[in-house]
Nucleic acid binder design. Sequence first.
DNA 1: ATAAACCTATGTGCAACACACAGGTCAATA
DNA 2: TATTGACCTGTGTGTTGCACATAGGTTTAT
Lengths: 147, 147
Amino acid sequence: MYVKQLAKLMGVTADTVRHYTRIGLLNPIRSEENGYQEYTKQDQQRLKFIISARQLGFSLKDIQHIIGESEQGNCPCPLTRKLITKRLEETEALFQETLKLRNRMHAALDQWDTSADGANASDVCSLIESFVDPINDSANKEQRNDD
Amino acid sequence: MYVKQLAKLMGVTADTVRHYTRIGLLNPIRSEENGYQEYTKQDQQRLKFIISARQLGFSLKDIQHIIGESEQGNCPCPLTRKLITKRLEETEALFQETLKLRNRMHAALDQWDTSADGANASDVCSLIESFVDPINDSANKEQRNDD
DNA sequence: ATAAACCTATGTGCAACACACAGGTCAATA
DNA sequence: TATTGACCTGTGTGTTGCACATAGGTTTAT
């Protein structure tokens, strides 16, 4: 089976399959007559595993390590548990950051809705330069003991 | 002012300043005696703008375009509004994806808490290969009309 | 003068692919 | 049989926003 067929079968792009092959996650056989990569059932199973692991947030390097453990005859599960814990922390952090960014963007759009496009010569874009984040504006943060 | 000093002053790394310089966002003057980049007050203002824009989710390329508009004498605000709308959509999508990923990871950890590290020879990692996502498992999705 | 500490510019690496390119393969047609 | 066209292939490079490594220059202390 050539790259395109495997890709289609597994619902990914041919470039993705080539990428996994390049970094050694898949090990097709180089056809002698035309130089094409020939993928076997094993590669197909392997690719399925990679896709599942990616869905759970593992990086390709994580997956390499997990496969490495497995191929050395060790049970990869402890490593898997350890890795997902780290990835979960990162995902949690990304989630929080993305949430905050989204809020900032909404706040900016709200503010810009009622502000004109005025252009001082001194700045680049008055909208951006005069944006005050109501969430992170320390004067408006939680307590207002200054009145 | 050299790169380190400007970076420290603005709360970013010297590498960040160098990066912005390399892609033309900052335009320091090359000192003739030692070949170092000399940053002016203008660069400092520009850097401040870049940092603000980054906080609002604009890409460096967005910022280049906005600055380009401004330097051509046009008001960049319409462009700014258009760009942030696009970026907000992307951020919203990322937010949703990250949320779903987080949920999948939690579900996996929950499931793995009560499942042993069993290792079938045929698979790479039984934890990953036998993970069933309760959220996306179509058999458990909303309606159960098959009974 | 010389050593140590600190700074600089430039080149490369990272993640996970997507894209561009040049050329090979295969079936249909003239 | 030759040729056209559609489709496929591998390999090289681009993407984003920096961080890191390297080699060397500057400055200060001795």
